[in-house]
Write a protein that binds this DNA or RNA. Structure first.
Lengths: 145, 145
DNA sequence: TTGACTGCAAATTGTTTGCATCATG
DNA sequence: CATGATGCAAACAATTTGCAGTCAA
């Protein structure tokens, strides 16, 4: 079983940045690897912490600038929950976030499950839902008892 | 026309604060009146501006503290859109916000219209949607051409 | 009189930016 | 060696807080 999966994925993303006129750097690679490790869904702050465990010199602003470059290349997107920092995730995963206001945990729902809902809204209000950029607030099963 | 002391909506809200151990003050009254004028849906910054037009001494922190007191008494709530400040509105108005990421305008949808959607989510994921505290991001009819 | 409310300034949090320097391509 | 990337500090925007004085009940 070849263990090239992770390396390749990071490489692919660095290539993508390269194609868009960017450069491959160690910081960027480390940031991308962290994103892959956690499968997206992480704040800039958390990325910085993890990256700095191995490369203490990497600055938070580099994290933000890299996230911005990744966004511009369409690799990642971010969601906002009620308060606090944005959470970054890969655009490839097409899902919606259910954010529990009590335990602050996030549950993912495949975007396809919301198909009837989003099309109903579009029909009624002409509003095209961007299901990659909205979090639904509420209370999860465990917390709403 | 007889002079009758009319109980205003602002009075009712001040009473509500009073019942919860708070005090009626001029600043609070002015802030509540602004909220009523615009029927909710306003940022703290905008409230401060409007209040300060008539009472320049009222500080922004008083606005925030009053909004917090109103929230604690259940009179108002706030929503977050993708970026920027929170928007405050009365809890009585039971609706959902459709936020256009392009023109940044907000369209309101009566919560009842989302009934099937929210109950479907609750059935499938045990997640109880707080439809007073989520904004749906996307693109409105005019902007999605 | 008591303690809630206020103004003011300063702290916080999350994110962005200016600038000099570094290093990839 | 040109230009994009980086570290650092400082600017930012939105909101919160500490403190001492004020005022409603």
């Amino acid at each position: 079983m070849p263990k090239v999966t992770k390396k390749t994925a990071a490489d692919d993303i660095l290539d993508r940045l390269r194609e868009d006129g960017g450069r491959r750097t160690a910081s960027r690679q480390a940031i991308i690897e962290v994103l892959l490790e956690v499968d997206g869904h992480i704040t800039a702050e958390e990325i910085a912490e993890r990256v700095q465990q191995r490369f203490p010199s990497v600055n938070k602003s580099t994290v933000y600038r890299t996230l911005s470059a990744l966004h511009d290349s369409g690799v990642i997107a971010h969601v906002h929950f009620g308060h606090g920092s944005a959470t970054y995730h890969f655009t490839a995963e097409d899902h919606v976030h259910l954010f529990c206001e009590t335990c602050e945990e996030v549950q993912e729902v495949p975007a396809s499950k919301l198909g009837e809902f989003t099309s109903a809204i579009e029909r009624a209000y002409g509003f095209r839902v961007d299901h990659r950029h909205f979090a639904i607030m509420g209370r999860c099963g465990r917390c709403s008892t």
